[in-house]
Amino acid sequence: MRFGRVVGNVVCTAKDANLEGVKLMVVQPLTQRLEPRGAMYIAADAVGQAGVGQIVTVVFSADATQAFPGPQIPVDASIVGLIDAATASILQGADEGVSS
């Protein structure tokens, strides 16, 4: 799993039937210090509660399809956890920890 920050969302009306009801979020990948690095991507929210600004854990490819019940779902990135605020502060280091 990797860290990401939810920065937005995507709306699709026409989509694969198994994506019905699945929230699609735009995620900025993060380093282990929670600094942005790399290109944003779309992830399916498998916990159903990821909001903009949240630090999340994400799994990819075959592991991402495992995040949803049912035989198949065409996703290659899934949000599987919301990082606790205290953990996020520690990862960001003292500078960020003071301001948050």
Binding site: Q32, A46, V47, Q49, T57, Q66, A67, V80, G81, L82, I83, D84, A85, A86, T87, I90, L91
Partner: peptide, 14 residues
């Protein structure tokens, strides 16, 4: 191992 990661909400598999 660098440290623990705590998630407030997570997938039931975790």
């Amino acid at each position: 191992v660098l440290g623990p990661i705590v998630c407030t909400i997570k997938h039931p598999a975790y």
